[in-house]
Design a protein around this nucleic acid. Sequence first.
RNA 1: GGGCGUUUAACUCAGCGGAAGAGUGCCACCUUCACACGGUGGAAGCCGUAGGUUCAAUCCCUACAACGCCCACCA
Length: 908
Amino acid sequence: MAEPPKGYEPAEIEPRWYAEWMARGYFHADAAAPKAPFAIVIPPPNVTGSLHMGHALGTTIEDIFTRWRRMAAYNAMWLPGSDHAGIATQMVVERELRATEKKSRHDIGREAFVARVWDWRQRTGDKIFAQLKRLGCSLDWERAIFTMDPPYSAAVIEAFVRLYEEGLIYRARRLINWCPNDRTALSDLEVDYDEGTVGELYEFAYPLADGSGEVVVATTRPETMLGDTAIAVHPDDPRHQAKIGKLVRHPFVNRELPIIADAVLVDPKFGTGAVKVTPAHDPNDFETGQRHNLPMISIFDDKGAVNAEGGPFAGLDRFAARKAVKARLKELGLERGSKPHVHAVGHCQRCEAVVEPMLSTQWFVKMEPLAKPAIEAVEQGKTKFVPESWSKTFFHWMNNIRDWCISRQLWWGHRIPAWYCGKCGETTVARTTPTACSKCGAGVDSLKQDEDVLDTWFSSWLWPFATLGWPSETRELKTFYPTTVLDTGYDILFFWVARMLMAGLHFMKKVPFRTVYFHTMVTDDKGEKMSKVKGNTIDPVEVIDQHGADALRFALAWQTTHAAQGKNIKFSIANVEDARRFANKIWNAAQFTMMNIEGYDADRYADRLADGPDRAELDLPERWILSRVQRVSEEVDGALEEYRIADAAQAAYHFVWDELCDWYIELAKASLRKVAGDTEAEREARSKIQGTMVTALETAMRLLHPFMPFLTEEIWQRLPKISGAPQSIMITLYPVRDVRFHDDASEASMALVQNIIVAVRGIRAERKIPTSTRLKVLLAVADDYKKTILEGYKGIIAEHARASEVRVRRSGANASGEYVIGQTAMAMAGDVEVVVPLEGIVDPGAEKAKLEKNRGKLLKDRDHLAKKLADPNFVNRAPLEVLDKDRARLAELEAAIEKVDLALRRIA
RNA sequence: GGGCGUUUAACUCAGCGGAAGAGUGCCACCUUCACACGGUGGAAGCCGUAGGUUCAAUCCCUACAACGCCCACCA
């Protein structure tokens, strides 16, 4: 006997299998294998990172695809790795340094600090890899790569040098986004705008130098007046026209500013119609400055404090300076007014400090030439976006793309491979440290390498090919590039996806991935973004500890529908509990199966089924469930093909629960009870049922394996298998289409039987008849075909409707006449009349009411259809199949109404 | 200021031209020998509002409303 059943305990089974799969090398894909490749690269998590729900969702999706394709005999390769995450990592290590030694990075110096970061990575980095293993991710760990690994770094330098040589990377003094807190430049994408910040529109006067009056300007940032180099007005503004060309006197620094006319910058309807121009601290003013050749005066240092240019305000932080400038303006009688003003303020994505536009010399990538081929590739469908709607967002950004500031004033990252000659000033860009200046030949001692490092994303955009060995022409690249699918959150469409497309097309001349699947963001159950500050995070590892990885994965897959902008997955632990109940259900179904397969011979059953179910002489339930599992397999496979992950998960779920457990196992139970197995014929009969049950369950396990790898492996291992079966469910074949098992007739017959059983159960439940009371059931059918079918399955109906007797008749006026009038319950199962005599326990009034209600419904449907079918417009224009369907339904309704009427007449 | 998305059962969401679906929750009954993490039956919806197209509209079109997201240098 099998062990007594117990509940599903994921903690007992999950840890074993991952180690086993690793040991057997199932996760590794050989680049030389003669199979169709299927490749996914993981969106590399930060080395500092710890698994959060967003990762759990993404990697679950990626693992589902990878396991599914691996089982479909593809050479499936899912490449793991991690990102050095410049600012983020540097900040983590700085924090640790401050906490443990009370030192800043400057105290220990660059070299020592970078060594610290490496040390930190050694100690605690890639913690997330262990967490991904808990989740069951079938990543090809042998290929794990870090963006700061020497080969990857070489690729980054190679990309930089090539782009520089092609004139696509340049160094220039521009207005860039500066984070005064992190003291580094940022790209435009790294600035988040706080929409609707309520600020102040402050007005003050600049006195005209000739004493003939003043000009009042409006600003949200009074302190920047320290760097003003002009006042702009609209050329056509009558209020200010006369002042154009005059000078104003700066009240604090010894400077006179011209009043200039500029139709681009100035909107005469806004504020006072006069704009103070600060070219070094505002993008619009910068452009104005260039148009008018204005001096550009930077007034802040790299910490955002006023520098020497700020005269009396030097040394003050920018926010203190704002107050001080305003106070002083007031003292001087120059303040003219103030009103609240709503505008957007840029914040550093990393530290949330207010970003300062600053004039600075930085490295840039010229984006337009790179963007063009990427736009075309997506237009031509070389890369497809799923859901497709994201391509609009993509095109919009790509068509308005601006140059990318890639230098960062950090220590952790890829150092810019540029050396400046102290003798002649030449810039030498090279793959390796140059020995001499490329222009004047001055020696190493005269060369100084650029202090800056590259934006982290400058290494990430090479990910799909740098991970495969680029710039070498490796076997890996040949086999796995372009990758098949990229799965990612839509939040990094611009940061990463768009840039990878550009880099891939530029360096590899091919798109980096055929399809981009965008998944949604995960929020808490109220739709709030999960954050540690808010305290609403759910730790996936804790969820796994409590409910198992399979439950978490299934809960996520269940909710993974196409990602629409502004929508998200509201994640609640209740979803995991639901999934866990499903896992438990599967577990118990397997327990039941195991307890009932004594004496079962898998090879014999396989032989029997080898020529299809027709030859196997199976009964209806067996033929039915084998047909159903076949259909569902196709449904799941088709859904995955179309990236409809939730549909795939739900189809499998409903098959297992509603069909396999609620119907087939119940049917099998009854059948097995009847055939004890005492004779050879009985053993034969048992074998068919056992084999079908095992087959249906085994197929369901394979179907579910990509979603719930641990549970399905555990159960699969325990099931009896044919000789020579693979060692693991991971390397079995995913259920494939096999038309021999399509059995429309059995599905139709079974549906009829099910409807009748449900009708009888309904009669019982509504009248509160205890299960122990056996009913007599009479079925009145309209045609001989159905009569024959039902005659054959009377036994099943009796068993599952708990009837002592089932009789089948052709319907006619007296079909149920033999039952005592007024003591009979009746219900319709389609056009089959289900009649149950209820001696002495029936309330004719209640029966009548029930039938009336039923009649009302039927009548309503009938009238609606009849009216429709009487409309010549409909009959003439609707397609034939729609007409046929409606006519057939009308006939069925008419028949049902007739029978209900008859029953009503009997009661009355 | 542009662009995009969402609005379907109490909740969370599928469906998107031919009879309104799922999970949870709710109600009633059932401790039936895989599972009470269960079984059986049931109730529950002007498919956001107003127009239009169509034989037919939750689904297509147009407006409106509410909510959400992205992009943008308006002082």
